[in-house]
Nucleic acid binder design. Structure first.
Lengths: 171, 171
DNA sequence: CTCTGATTGAGATTGAGTCTCAACTACAGG
DNA sequence: CCTGTAGTTGAGACTCAATCTCAATCAGAG
């Protein structure tokens, strides 16, 4: 919320990973952990992905890019990235977890289509405020929340409507 | 929302499972599925549990009560109960799914304590209304939603505060 | 440069949940 | 009350995301 020091301005042109890497390093240091090439690679991979991805997908991506990280290390690093607030882990109904990097992004919630599994992001200040209110009513200190609305997205509804009208015409 | 037929009134004294069983039966019939002892047992077990439970726990409970349902059948039946709107499935962070029966209960959301894993239920009309509003803004038809707030509950905060003050006194 | 405790990866392991299939059974229709 | 058939069950095999093991390796403070 405070004004950025002038020094920050000079960094604008830097590679996108420089600052988050610094943040990861700080986190690691605070836990007596070490920066390693593998952790750097995972961070890079995570930042390069838009939207939601799963661990397997990221693993493939890293291998294609000649950043050979083992599955074990990938999961371990995703835990650290989550703990350091650079990444968020989701569980949308299906089996496995999905991740998204939240560095430099605003908080948002999700609508998930039960048909096509597409994900719509949204954010509503009023809801957020009410959530805080509910928490304080219960003396609960919130560190995080998820809100997922499941249903049918607009285009799936339209597809459905079209299919219905076709069927009716035939009869 | 309509007035109940007079016939309903006479059922007040019936065992708690009679009406939900009817509802399950209707659902099964609509899908060309059959009512079986196993499905009845699972329904009974589910209704007898307050709050959240996992599949394994329910399995043990049923076996103790001499209602020997296999793991496969339990999962299959929980799917049907979920589809018929008698049960809700949750995934609070941890690995496995938790269930709760929602027959005769009002919709509610959850706060989950990261320390002690206790779950606080809450319900806020304003939030619900805003969610509907967000959906209609996106032409999204919602069938279901989950909202989970993670953080530290009141009693864990107090425990923490006490521990801190002890530590300080020592130094 | 050295030493120590953190880190890594291959592969084994876990565990929730699903699948298979032969034996069984609910129930609609005689 | 039978009978036929299509749905149901359970033991155990299987899946697959995620975690664990442990010997070899390495980061980084001093």
């Amino acid at each position: 919320m405070e004004a950025q020091p002038a020094r920050r301005r000079a960094e604008r042109g830097h590679p996108k990973t420089a600052e988050p890497e610094e943040r990861l390093r700080d986190y690691l240091r605070s836990k007596n952990l070490r920066m390693t090439p593998e952790r750097r690679w995972v961070l890079q991979g995570v930042l390069s992905r838009d939207g939601h991805f799963d661990a397997e997908e990221l693993l493939q991506f890293l291998h294609r890019r000649h950043m050979p990280v083992s599955r074990a290390t990938l999961y371990r690093t995703l835990d650290h990235l989550t703990a350091s607030g650079l990444v968020k882990r989701h569980r949308f109904g299906q089996g496995h977890a999905l991740f998204e990097h939240i560095y430099g992004r605003h908080h948002h919630d999700h609508m998930v289509c039960d048909r096509c599994h597409s994900v719509i992001e949204f954010m509503n200040e009023d809801i957020e405020r009410l959530q805080d209110q509910v928490c304080s009513e219960h003396g609960f200190v919130s560190t995080n929340h998820v809100m997922q609305i499941f249903g049918i997205c607009k285009s799936c509804q339209e597809a459905e409507a079209k299919r219905m009208s076709m069927a009716t015409r035939e009869a």
